[in-house]
Write a protein that binds this DNA or RNA. Sequence first.
DNA 1: TGCCTGACATCGG
DNA 2: GCCGATGCCAGGC
Length: 109
Amino acid sequence: MDYEADINHRIWQVVATIPHGTVATYGDIASSAGLGRAARRVGLALRRLPEASLIPWHRVINSQGRLSLPTGSLEQQTQRIRLETEGIMFRKNNSIDLKQYGWQRHRHH
DNA sequence: TGCCTGACATCGG
DNA sequence: GCCGATGCCAGGC
C-alpha cells in the first residue's frame, strides 16, 4: 500500500488503544503515531475510517476538551452519546475535563 | 501551480 | 471564554 494509507493505519492503530471511558486529543494521537504536531493529519485519517470500523474514533477530541465535529451534526451527536455511554460527563459548556478523562493525563513537563 | 479548506494546536489580546 | 493569527499536513479544484 502507499505511504498515505500506511499513515492512516498507524493512526487508527493508536486510536484503537485508547481505553474505554477515556479520551485522547488529536495532538496526543499525532505524537504517539510518530507524526510530531500533525494533529490535522489525525482528523483526516479518522474521516477516512470505514463506516463499519470498530475503531473507537469517538474517544478523540480536541485540546480544549471539546468535540471537533460540526456542532449539531448527526456525527457529533453520535460521538457525544457514545462518550456519555462510557461514563464520560460533559461540563455545562459542553467540554470534557481532560484532567479527569484524558489519556496521557499523567505526563509532566 | 496556486489557493482555499479542514474531525487541529498554541499563543495573544 | 471568544476571536484571530500562525504553523501544520493533506485534499480538492
